[in-house]
Write a protein that binds this DNA or RNA. Sequence first.
DNA 1: CTCTGAAGCGGAGCACTGTTCCGGTAACTA
DNA 2: TAGTTACCGGAACAGTGCTCCGCTTCAGAG
Lengths: 201, 201
Amino acid sequence: MPATSRSAEVPARARRADAVRNQQALLTAAAAVFVTSGVDAPIREIAARAGVGIGTIYRHFPTRADLVVAVYRHQVEACAQAGPALLASAGSPLAALRQWADLFVDFLVTKHGLGRALRPDSSGYEALHTYFLDRLVPVCAQLLEAAVDAGEIRPGTGAYELMRGIGNLCAGGDSDPRYAPRRLTGLLLTGLQRPPGGGGT
Amino acid sequence: MPATSRSAEVPARARRADAVRNQQALLTAAAAVFVTSGVDAPIREIAARAGVGIGTIYRHFPTRADLVVAVYRHQVEACAQAGPALLASAGSPLAALRQWADLFVDFLVTKHGLGRALRPDSSGYEALHTYFLDRLVPVCAQLLEAAVDAGEIRPGTGAYELMRGIGNLCAGGDSDPRYAPRRLTGLLLTGLQRPPGGGGT
DNA sequence: CTCTGAAGCGGAGCACTGTTCCGGTAACTA
DNA sequence: TAGTTACCGGAACAGTGCTCCGCTTCAGAG
């Protein structure tokens, strides 16, 4: 096998310049369209804005989720890295968990319609669901575990459950001032808290 | 003006028998289809199952939400009436609120995809959103208020906010065993609880 | 029972989606 | 410069929601 892997001395062939250009244009266009029309915006609209054909968008991003992931990868990454950082800087694991949750909530509500993607039944978003969970559940689990170990919250709640709960609470979050996802998320975490006194339930 | 209102002595004309028949068939068909395909099932599928044309379904139920409301009206009504009943029968207002929340959660998760309808941005479901809120928010408010008056929970949370929070938590609820809407709803209510000791955060 | 007006019906048709597929083009390589 | 082929574009297909209008058939008058 003649080493088809990357970093080989025979790079097979360089990626064509127009392909690189188009992929970049697509990312820029998608980011702009997502802001105005949400992540469910018609594919044609994104393609038109990028100045490419429909086929091109499907070649670079086979599913809509692939495009969404590519657009938001940086922010998800930042959110993932904020976990350990907060754990180190905050006063307590629970405080870190709260701050991290706020971060996550802000990310979801500012990205119009993104919260839905956390749901496993969202058709067309499987890849996004997977990516989110793969990247963030471990971070959440670490924070959760630290808070449990510190005796600040009761054990028994999974990171997956908490993540999806928070994600769901963010659905349609910026449409009515009477509904504040951050507040409800905080309430959820308070519900997790172990009463300082002792005897639970 | 010759009294065009209902209950007049000139009933204008009796409703045609086939119209009544079709509306009933539509309700039955829709209920069946909703179970198997969710409330987003294609209109054509419902029409076909009822043995009527597309036009007929649109005449009887101009929007999809009208159909959904008609199908679930009884259950929403039951849920609304359970509020005061639980308040009378349960040991405390908070206990009543918890039981009522469980009732509501069970209703939403068993109706595949119905939770989404609680969101204000769900296109095509405005009527459903309105109906749900009009009917249930007052009930929830009564329970909430009673619990606050009893000193069991902290004031400051609106019934609308709580209802939507619970509704959101139910989204996609029956697809993964690791995600239990009832548990999270309970957690949310626990978060609302006033610590028995006294001065909380 | 027959007649008639209109309430009601059915589905063709339009607009708008996502997705596939393939002939043509233009970017690399030698 | 010429050849290869990765890549592009958009026509085309399939599945939606919803409208609109000619035809059917029911309810009530005679």
